[in-house]
């Protein structure tokens, strides 16, 4: 049977969710998988709540609609927990990963999801500020995602990250991004 993984990203415009969805898709392609990545387009205003979607599969992907029943939900901004139903449609046994300082058990209680859903917290913004020196949480969030699921490969991801960054930045920036990925991988906690 085809193995299809569906990821829904929640973020505020400008946080890099679309870029992250794209890099995750490229990482999947590098492992010879099929993938799809698309933002839900609307009026583009910095800070507005947005969604983006990534599908990864062992077989060609034929569906061309939004993801309503995700396997994985990634939230780049925890202020969205108050205004968006980020847990909507999440599968039993699914994963919700939030960029937050709040411990995962508290996030889980607040979301009111059933026990089979794994809820994870990581302070990706804090890590990004320490390493990349800017609040761009998308890259460390992928590091945490890799810890929680085997949907993409860490080495392939880091390789692509370096390749993409090297177009505009030097080794220092690549090292900072790698450090952010490693720290999020190490620091993410699950309830």
């Amino acid at each position: 049977m085809p193995q299809l993984t569906e990821i829904r990203w929640h973020a505020r415009a400008g946080q890099g969710a679309v870029t992250a969805a794209k890099v995750v898709a490229e990482t999947a392609l590098a492992a010879d998988k099929y993938m799809q990545a698309m933002p839900e387009y609307g009026p583009e205003r910095m800070g507005a709540p947005i969604k983006a979607f990534t599908r990864i599969s062992t077989d060609p992907i034929e569906i061309h609609c939004n993801i309503e029943y995700p396997d994985i939900v990634i939230v780049l901004d925890d202020s969205l927990l108050d205004i968006v139903d980020i847990a909507e449609g999440v599968h039993d046994g699914g994963v919700i990963l939030v960029n937050t300082c709040t411990p995962p058990d508290q996030v889980k209680t607040r979301l009111g999801v059933n026990d089979s859903v794994r809820v994870a917290s990581v302070d990706a913004s804090g890590i990004a500020l320490d390493t990349i020196k800017r609040d761009i949480p998308n890259t460390p969030m992928v590091g945490a995602l890799i810890k929680l699921t085997s949907v993409i490969d860490m080495d392939v991801f880091k390789g692509l990250l370096a390749k993409n960054l090297s177009k505009k930045f030097g080794q220092e920036m690549i090292d900072a991004n790698w450090a952010s990925v490693d720290r999020a991988f190490a620091e993410v906690t699950v309830a």
Binding site: K22, Q36, A37
Partner: peptide, 12 residues
């Protein structure tokens, strides 16, 4: 090609 669905989605 379908606007956004095909024009803007990243595909293989």
């Amino acid at each position: 090609l379908d606007g956004f669905i095909t024009t803007h989605s990243i595909d293989r």
